[in-house]
């Protein structure tokens, strides 16, 4: 089977997020008040050949931890992508 997977990479809690805070600071000048805790991250989409959804997610998590994220500063969350 072929499973579509998405990986969300965000900075770990406690790690400064310069992109997120710059976006947040600029929002009031555009008239968007009351928007808080903006965090910037990365989205990866790909497909995995696997015999089950769990196996696909396991492969995805392995490659996310090895390459797509830097575990020193980032968390990677894998889920099955919806078409």
């Amino acid at each position: 089977m072929n499973y579509a997977v998405r990986v969300d990479v965000t900075l770990r809690t406690g790690i400064a997020d310069p992109a997120g805070s710059t976006i947040e600071r600029s929002l009031p000048t555009l008239g968007f008040d009351g928007v808080h805790r903006v965090r910037a991250g990365k989205l990866f989409l790909f497909e995995v050949d696997a015999s089950s959804p769990d196996e696909a997610l396991l492969t995805a998590q392995k490659l996310a931890d090895r390459l797509l994220s830097n575990p020193v500063i980032e968390d990677a969350r894998c889920s099955l992508a919806e078409d």
């Binding site: 900075l11 790690i15 020193v72």
Partner: peptide, 17 residues
């Protein structure tokens, strides 16, 4: 060197981008 694990920590985007 940090990505390779030969040195600890990481370099991220400058404060103020």
């Amino acid at each position: 060197l940090t990505e390779a694990g030969l040195l600890p920590g990481a370099l991220q985007k400058n404060r103020g981008l």
